[in-house]
């Protein structure tokens, strides 16, 4: 990428093909996984900590069933929700694995996601928070690099939230418990894993909402185009 400031106003290649493909595949799969997951959750809308947990036991969270507008299928059908969820989950998990390996190989991680030393100074982070709060988004060449808050959220999603939701999902499987007994120990029990699976899903929903907000504020057409064709018009400096 060109780092000179005279790129402002120019159209540049922003996102790699691998990033674009993975992004839209995730958009589809996470939508199916969330809505079918809520359908499964509706079969027993209670969450517990520890190895066991059923109706006679103490639940830390008891919810009403999620409405048909956000579950797949819309009418309660545990079997169909499971078919959707368990068909989408392996595709999602292997896509993440391949994306991680690919991004390691093509240096996307090292070049675009890894923090630079000066970025993680408290003053720099604080400045970035203030800029975000005032909705002063970077312009010119600076807009072509991820800022520190953006890097932190992408790293958090790719390397923490997504692996966590996959591993806690696997922990719910009695077959996987026999294959990989360390999973149960890692999360302190199947019911703890179920709670963490649910909490991580909502952390991802929160990420999604902020992500959409940022796209809308930064210029939705330019941002969406850059994620489809890769082409991005570099924002001009403010007068």
């Amino acid at each position: 990428m060109d780092s000179r400031t005279d790129t402002a106003g120019m159209v540049v290649r922003r996102h790699r093909l691998s990033t674009r493909l993975w992004h839209w595949l995730n958009a589809l799969l996470l939508y199916v996984l969330l809505t079918s997951g809520l359908g499964i959750f509706n079969a027993h809308p209670r969450l517990y900590w520890g190895q066991y947990g059923a109706n006679p036991d103490h639940a830390w969270l008891i919810l009403e069933r999620f409405g048909g507008w956000i579950t797949l299928p819309a009418r309660y059908n545990l079997s169909m929700s499971r078919h959707w969820h368990l068909a989408a989950a392996p595709v999602f998990a292997f896509a993440l694995l391949f994306y991680m390996l690919w991004s390691l190989a093509n240096r996307h991680i090292a070049r675009d996601l890894a923090f630079a030393r000066e970025e993680i100074r408290p003053r720099h982070i604080w400045q970035d928070i203030r800029d975000h709060a005032r909705l002063r988004f970077p312009t010119g060449a600076a807009a072509l690099r991820y800022n520190v808050l953006q890097k932190a959220s992408y790293i958090g999603v790719i390397f923490i939230a997504l692996p966590l939701i996959i591993l806690t999902g696997l922990t719910l499987s009695p077959g996987m418990n026999a294959a990989w007994p360390w999973l149960v120990d890692l999360f302190g029990g199947r019911q703890s894993a179920r709670s963490i699976h649910f909490l991580t899903a909502f952390a991802l929903v929160a990420f999604f909402l902020v992500h959409i907000l940022m796209v809308l504020l930064a210029g939705p057409l330019n941002e969406v185009r850059s994620m489809i064709s890769g082409r991005y018009r570099v924002p001009k400096d403010r007068p």
Binding site: H44, R46, G53, A54, L172, P174, R194
Partner: peptide, 10 residues
């Protein structure tokens, strides 16, 4: 551990 398809365990 008995794992029900609904999500609970005993």
């Amino acid at each position: 551990r008995h794992d029900c398809v609904e999500g609970w365990s005993a």
